[in-house]
Design a protein around this nucleic acid. Structure first.
Lengths: 110, 110
DNA sequence: GCATACAACTTACCATTAGTAAGTTGGATG
DNA sequence: CATCCAACTTACTAATGGTAAGTTGTATGC
């Protein structure tokens, strides 16, 4: 039987696995992060790129991402317009996204 | 709002990044899959290994995982007791979990 | 074979979160 | 300085999750 800490690495990291996967797995989180992978975007560019998402939820998710340091609000060159950009930490999720897409590719060929 | 399923492979997970990450990111999905990575488990072994999860939600998530072909219900040797085991497809999510854990390890806060 | 215990659900009800839509604010543009 | 529209905010409804109690089924002991 698995105990919560019985994972072979440090218990701190192990105990955070649940929080981590639930955070990045929250509704719309994945596609928002994925959308920002291709570069900084304005609010309405994100909504237009993600069919079905509402302003309210995008605001909420972006604020959560900012709070967790995965996204920053940034002034876009050369105007005064602001947009949202992945931080280095956020950008490092690329490997997670790649792993998911690899898994998907294997699965659909079955 | 759920977009219509246009691939016909399964009801939730198809070759679409959004559906896939939302499926494996559903509440408790990550830890359930992670728990089963170390081998087949009985129902109560899973609940005991995941503090906070309820019988109702574990039943619901296991049924979703079975429906999507990530988990099978299996008779555990040598008794008549049944348990839950990851399929090959489910087990291949190990790389996704590894990628998340690597990302976590790099981070300073969450 | 009957009683007990516990595992594995199931149901019911309340709380939280998501979806929808309308309203508000504030900066850009004519 | 009026209009537009991006970027929120608020209010309300629908869906999902949390909690707890109830039900069914199988193992074990007498």
């Amino acid at each position: 039987m698995n105990r919560p800490n019985d994972c072979g690495i440090s218990s701190h990291v192990c105990n955070n696995f649940h929080d981590t996967i639930e955070f990045i797995g929250k509704r719309w989180m994945g596609v928002i992060i994925y959308t920002l992978m291709s570069g900084p975007k304005r609010f309405h560019e994100i909504t237009e790129g993600i069919p079905g998402i509402s302003d309210r939820l995008l605001t909420e998710r972006l604020n959560e991402l900012i709070k967790e340091g995965l996204v920053i609000k940034k002034q876009l060159e050369p105007s005064t317009i602001i947009g949202y950009e992945l931080t280095d930490t956020g950008m490092e999720l690329k490997e997670v996204i790649t792993a998911i897409r690899n898994w998907m590719a294997k699965r659909t060929t079955l």
